[in-house]
Amino acid sequence: MSSSPIIELFKEETRRSKSTFRQVYAVIWANLKILLSYKYWVVTDFLSTAASIVMYFFMGLQVDPAQLAARGYGEDYAAFALVGISTSQYLWICLSRLSHSIQHDIRGGTLETVAVTQIKMGAYFLGQTVRGYLISLFFLAGTLSVGLFVLRIPLQINLSTLTAAFVTFLLMILSNQAIGFITAGIVMVHKRGDPVTFMLAGMNEFLSGVLYPLDLLKQFPPLYALARLFPYTYALDALRKTLTGGAGMFSPDVYYDLVVLVAFSVILLPIGLKVLKWGYDTIRRNGTMATY
């Protein structure tokens, strides 16, 4: 141990290299590495998503095809459920992931050590968010492959439906990410798990028609109206209309859904960012950036 090499090194004038991109990349890279070190988790999570598809495949065998066909969703409940379950799981896991990793960083004390560096907290939150979506793509792809290639669930796949589905998918993420920001803001301050995402996920799964055709809800107008308040309801409808119904992006129903999703994004995202900032400022005021 001799301090002189360090002193010499620190005497050198050095280049700074300011790059937000590199910072975001570092956040993604480090957290990806951390996640992959949890090997069991990666495997079990994959298996459990795949298993849920299989389960609904079997459940679907009891479904009366006429009931589905009458509502314009084709005759295949498995396809109907595959689109619903794979996207809703993807979305909610991603949305909760930001607050999870923030909590993890609060617990471990690393949120503070990141915050005193020169990273803009926006870059940190962006990195954590993007990482969430990237990782879950792997699960989404796995789920879809099990559905398509193992269970041979028929989906309408061609250039037009894929483009439409892709655009819907991006808008689904954008319009819902506000929820992720809002919950992350709340979680930072209240430190109590992530009740909001959990609750919204449950309500969406119920109200947006993940497991049954949405118009069954019309029997109960208040519930139906409530369902219309969630962007995911529109996203799911559009995804199904394209992937199981074969519609393209500019078919009137899908187009309408997409416009609504854009509107949701424009309204909700700024609110989400405000709440996130509020959460971060509050823990700095309360001095609770490392307390849980």
């Binding site: 700074r16 290299s17 570092a26 890279w29 560096t117 020169q118 990273i119």
Partner: peptide
């Protein structure tokens, strides 16, 4: 990781 956040050039 922290070096990236601190804007330190990778070689340095």
């Amino acid at each position: 990781f922290y070096a990236s956040l601190q804007n330190i050039h990778p070689d340095v």
